[in-house]
Amino acid sequence: MHTAPPLAGLRILEMAGIGPGPFCGMMLADHGAEVIRVERPSRGGMTDPARDPLLRSRRTIVLDLKRPEAVAAVRHLAATCDGLIEGYRPGVMERLGLGPDLLLADNPRLVYGRMTGWGQTGPLADEPGHDIDYLAISGTLHALGEAGRKPNAPINLAADFGGGGMMLAFGMLAAILHVKATGEGQVVDAAMTDGSAVLSSMIWGFRAMGQWRDERGTNLLDGGAPFYDTYETADGKWIAVGAIEPQFYAALRGVMALDGSEWDTQFVPSAWPALKQELATRFKARPRDAWVAAFAGHEACIAPVLGFDEAVAHPHNVARGTFVTAGSVVQPAPAPRYSASTTVAPRMAGRTEGAAILAEAGFDADAIAALL
């Protein structure tokens, strides 16, 4: 029998932003934290809260932080919370009167999470940037792309979300555990440059062992190896091949009748271009789903490259409930799963709940009316 979500009882204040900060808030809320999102009065933006999964499963209050009484209200709310998430440029929260020194003085157990691209310190700290820029200076972007072609960013997954929002969520929980052990709150400085560098730790290890070249598309995991790449099929779709280990490579050879001695040179990089060309020709001869059927049961580490709609309908994803629908929006379900705890069923952002949030925090009706 499942129990309450694992983060039930935690209270987080999220200063509204876009991208990695909201992703951190979503992750914490998905796993049971009460997350209160502080929005500024609407000036338009890139997102529709009722359709944005990043904003799911938390309550919202709208406050004009140009007004001293609104700033005071945020300080009051932060004093009741275990953590705060903000994603402004360095110094913005301090200028608002909501910097970590003040809020930690109000609440010494507070974990103050700061999400930026470059970090709170360093010569680029005050510069603007986006995921692709942070990925660029971490060295990670240089490794992404096809041989002989330009670096190619993986949408904004590696810096914004993997190296940013997920790292901040981890840092918040690590610091909250520290509070529980010591009573000492602190600032978590989550920089997407740092995080995207950490994500590439295995590749740095390969380099140290002489197993990774700086040239894109020439290595084991970057599309250089014929047995670890994507191939177009007869219907213009794609198949993903990940047959690294000997038994999987043998299965690949068996299904595709790769009998020549040249296929014995699996880990000889000089042989890879010719083998890749041969695989490309062979895969192009049949439709994608025909290849999927041919490889079924052979354990060759082969999978179809699915579009979003196809992914939602794939039997494995259906069986696991990998995608859910909330408020008519199809979206990924919370992950990971727990053996003893539930996660929170996603609910889309709706009307603001500022009056209830302030009343719970002890504000009287007149104060609430003035603030909202």
Rank of each mutant, 00 (worst) to 15 (best):
A79F: 00
F206Q: 09
E127Y: 14
L173H: 08
R286K: 14
G113A: 15
K276C: 04
L98G: 08
L221Q: 08
T121Q: 13
A125R: 15
G87E: 01
S196T: 15
A105E: 13
E245Y: 00
A174S: 14
A72V: 01
P246N: 00
T352H: 12
D264G: 07
E86H: 05
T233E: 07
A257K: 10
F363S: 01
G183Q: 09
P100V: 04
W263A: 05
K66Y: 10
D160A: 10
A143V: 06
D189Y: 12
L199N: 09
R320V: 00
A296Q: 14
V268S: 11
A319Q: 11
D366T: 14
R149E: 15
C81N: 01
L77G: 00
R59P: 10
L13I: 15
P336Q: 05
I239S: 07
G83W: 08
A326S: 13
V312C: 12
A250G: 08
G21W: 05
E232C: 10
T265R: 15
L275K: 14
E353Q: 11
I368Q: 05
E14N: 04
M1N: 09
G91T: 11
L103E: 01
M46F: 13
L279K: 10
T60P: 02
V318L: 11
I239A: 08
V179H: 01
P22H: 02
A136Y: 05
Y231E: 02
M209S: 13
L358Q: 00
L252M: 09
E245M: 07
A311L: 05
L157H: 08
S42I: 02
L10T: 03
L10D: 08
D264T: 10
L279F: 11
L103D: 02
F227N: 02
H178L: 03
I302R: 09
G165T: 11
V35A: 03
V344Q: 01
G117K: 05
L110S: 12
G183M: 06
Y249C: 03
A356N: 06
P334D: 11
L372C: 13
A29T: 04
A33F: 07
